[in-house]
């Protein structure tokens, strides 16, 4: 959407390698994410794209390589991830709202108990964010009373309410009914327009093309191709990407 190549690098992952037992899940993955950049990672199931995303906020550990963020290498053992996770928000495929808490308490848990912010201020912010995703009247609902699309929008608000610098989206529309995909993607597109730095793993090709500054194509734990969205979807550089796209595009 915008040219961000000259913006400072926010997260710099270099040669990230991860094994599950003996299987290589990530093989020398290097990717620098610039401020305000929207990077979309594509690839077949099991290519390591979700695993890579989860390495960026410490939900998976890395065996080799480095992940530099604000001058620290997060890949080192002994990293305290809690302050990092407050700055790198994440949204999951299956929403993962806390089912025993109301929307209000879901949204306040992080700001009040992790960030120790005043409840009233955190609530004001949560209300503002809910308004932005069109769910201002849902503050007192419980997750079970919401549709999938509503849950996912609230999960996005939950991550945003920590005021993160980066947002990670892990196949956030994959579990949704088709008619609810749009409402969630619109929220993410809105964030992109407001300059949020984002790393998005998705299977929605049309959305990837619309939102991405850069497409990263992964296969078998490696980055095969990095390209602009226009070039990637019209004339990809690698045969592997061509074969991948031929299965999606008619």
């Amino acid at each position: 959407m915008t040219t961000t190549a000259n913006a400072p690098v926010l997260i710099d992952a270099a040669c990230v390698t991860k094994f599950y037992d003996t299987r290589k899940a990530l093989d020398n993955v290097s990717l620098a994410i610039h401020a305000k950049e929207v990077v979309v990672i594509l690839g077949p199931s099991g290519c390591g794209k979700s695993t890579f995303l989860r390495c960026l906020n410490g939900l998976e550990t890395v065996q080799a390589g480095s992940i530099r963020f604000h001058g620290r290498d997060l890949a080192r053992p002994g990293t305290d991830w809690r302050p990092v996770r407050q700055r790198i928000g994440m949204v999951f495929q299956s929403y993962e709202l806390f089912p025993h808490l109301s929307v209000r308490d879901n949204l306040l848990l992080g700001p009040v108990h992790v960030q120790k912010r005043p409840r009233a201020e955190a609530l004001r912010q949560a209300e503002g964010l809910l308004e932005r995703v069109g769910l201002a009247d849902r503050l007192d609902s419980f997750p079970r009373q919401l549709s999938g699309g509503q849950k996912q929008r609230i999960a996005i608000v939950r991550a945003l309410s920590m005021n993160p610098e980066v947002m990670l989206f892990d196949e956030v529309t994959a579990a949704l009914d088709p008619e609810m995909v749009r409402e969630v993607l619109d929220v993410i597109l809105g964030l992109a327009r407001n300059g949020m730095t984002m790393v998005i793993v998705t299977h929605e090709m049309g959305f990837a093309r619309a939102v991405a500054d850069r497409i990263v194509f992964m296969d078998e734990g490696r980055i095969c191709e990095t390209n602009t969205p226009v070039k990637f979807f019209t004339a990809p550089d690698t045969d592997r990407a061509k074969r991948f796209l031929s299965r999606f595009l008619y």
Binding site: L59, R85, G89, F98, L109, G110, V114, Q115, R158
Partner: peptide, 20 residues
């Protein structure tokens, strides 16, 4: 994934267990 979601907002181990 509930553990992941709790960790992803920065909850400590104790907070994660007690609150989630």
């Amino acid at each position: 994934a509930q553990y992941d979601a709790g960790r992803a907002i920065g909850l400590s181990g104790a907070q994660l267990h007690l609150r989630v």
